[in-house]
């Protein structure tokens, strides 16, 4: 059965690694739903957060194939209940026609979104939340003139209490042997 899975991948920061990882998904005909890469809390270690919709067996196989890459330190696979996910979205809304009352302000307040800039022609709203929160918010904005909408990849923290540093130390210990 297909489900949503999140892969959290820690890597060395090496040229071409994104390509190496992404071709593994291509090879297995699995579509990447979202992808986020960023530095991690350990210096020199990069992290990838990739969400996919697939079977557990396929997801686990992908995890192993990714972890096999020389510059990949560790790849973890999580089900939805094991992660606390967040995404961020930006909405550019035309200021024309906004004069009628304060319904937008109310919506922003109720949705825990915020206005990050106001220009003469448009304003920009930021909404942080789960994918569903963001989709709901977008739907609620249908009465307004949304000119641009963009959403980030997912970032997560995980419920298990492991620490990146511990995995790195373990790798170093094994390497020394």
């Amino acid at each position: 059965m297909n489900r949503k899975y999140t892969l959290l991948i820690y890597t060395e920061n090496h040229v071409g690694l994104l390509n190496r990882i992404s071709i593994i998904f291509t090879r297995h005909k699995v579509n990447i739903e979202s992808l986020n890469t960023s530095p991690s809390m350990e210096e020199g270690v990069h992290s990838f957060v990739i969400t996919i919709n697939t079977s557990l067996a396929q997801a686990e196989h992908l995890r192993k194939a990714i972890e096999k890459q020389v510059e990949v330190l560790k790849a973890f696979l999580y089900e939805e209940k094991q992660v606390i996910p967040m995404e961020v979205a930006l909405f550019k809304i035309s200021t024309e026609g906004l004069k009628s009352g304060n319904s937008l302000e109310k919506l922003i307040r109720e949705s825990s979104a915020r206005i990050i800039t106001v220009e003469p022609e448009f304003l920009v709203i930021e909404k942080t939340g789960t994918q569903n929160d963001i989709q709901d918010f977008l739907a609620q904005l249908s009465d307004f003139d949304v000119r641009e909408f963009i959403q980030s990849g997912r970032v997560i923290v995980t419920r298990p209490m492991g620490k990146l540093k511990d995995y790195l130390l373990d790798l170093e210990r094994q390497e020394e042997k």
């Binding site: 060395e12 020389v70 510059e71 990949v72 330190l73 790798l171 094994q174 390497e175 020394e176 042997k177």
Partner: peptide
């Protein structure tokens, strides 16, 4: 050379 991310002979 030591490559931290690469453990060719696991325990």
């Amino acid at each position: 050379p030591v490559i931290r991310s690469y453990v060719p002979y696991p325990e």
